[in-house]
């Protein structure tokens, strides 16, 4: 409550509002779940089946035998079985108990049915994956037999090829359902108070460039050439003794 009062008292003349959540903060919260990973946690006799995290409420939604998986530009691997839970998609090799992959629905950016033989020889479910380092998505692996973790974490496309193409629409619908079951985790402090007021910089002689909203015809490319507006504002506030809640902005500023 004291924090809120402090912020209110800070309100004077201001014309900039800054987001409390910058890239790095969010990325670190989600780092554990991004991308494709190996999955070998099987239970049961023979080839077995995946162990679900039932303590965390994970439930099986659908099993689809006879599915090949193609990660990035690697050749498809088969035969395998697709297990879809309410949290993630798992592909388990039917022949090798130590071979399998899993990806959380939280990491699946986009999914679609692809039936055009010109772009891919077999009808498939095409997915885009939010990877840890998407910039390296052109990365080409050399070892198609066993991609290592660092390769897996960079993969941004995954295709699932069911032996029976009639299953594609069913799989598509299950994917839609499951994405809906996995909304973005709530950001802890979602109050409007977590947005930060900026000072009205027009009084600041050292910062003549801040007149961004005064003259909308001003070419903004010049203003922002190599000047990071948001960080400068955060700095100004952190140095301001009147602002008692500097810690949060310190975090945001470490990006």
């Amino acid at each position: 409550m004291r924090e809120r009062e402090a912020r209110r008292s800070y309100v004077r003349t201001r014309n900039i509002i800054i987001s409390p959540v910058l890239d790095g903060k969010k990325a670190s919260q989600r780092a554990m779940i991004l991308g494709i990973r190996h999955f070998t946690d099987r239970i049961g006799e023979g080839i077995g089946q995946p162990r679900f995290d039932s303590a965390e409420g994970e439930e099986l939604m659908h099993v689809q035998p006879g599915v090949a998986i193609a990660l990035g530009r690697l050749l498809p691997e088969s035969p395998g079985t697709l297990y879809i839970s309410n949290r993630r998609v798992m592909w388990l090799s039917d022949t090798d108990r130590d071979k399998g992959y899993a990806v959380d629905f939280l990491s699946i950016s986009l999914h679609a049915v692809s039936r055009d033989p010109e772009t891919y020889p077999s009808p498939c479910i095409y997915t885009q994956i939010e990877a840890e380092d998407a910039k390296d998505d052109q990365f080409e692996g050399s070892d198609a037999e066993c991609p290592d973790e660092s390769y897996l974490s960079k993969i941004t496309e995954m295709r699932l090829v069911p032996h029976d193409p009639n299953q594609l629409d069913t799989l598509f619908d299950i994917f839609c359902q499951c994405v809906e079951l996995n909304p973005e985790p709530l950001e802890g402090d979602d109050e409007e108070n977590s947005w930060i007021f900026g000072e009205d910089f027009t009084d600041d002689g050292d910062q003549p460039e801040w007149h961004i909203s005064e003259d909308l015809a001003n070419p903004i490319g010049q203003v922002n050439g190599n000047h990071d507006l948001a960080h400068s504002v955060l700095h100004l506030q952190i140095n301001d003794q009147r602002f008692e809640d500097a810690e949060e902005m310190e975090d945001a500023n470490h990006n």
Binding site: S109, A112, D116, T119, F175
Partner: peptide, 17 residues
Amino acid sequence: KYPHMLSIRNCFIRESV
């Protein structure tokens, strides 16, 4: 960037992306 997208008619996009 994503040549494969050309072959797709329908797709489902996660809001956060």
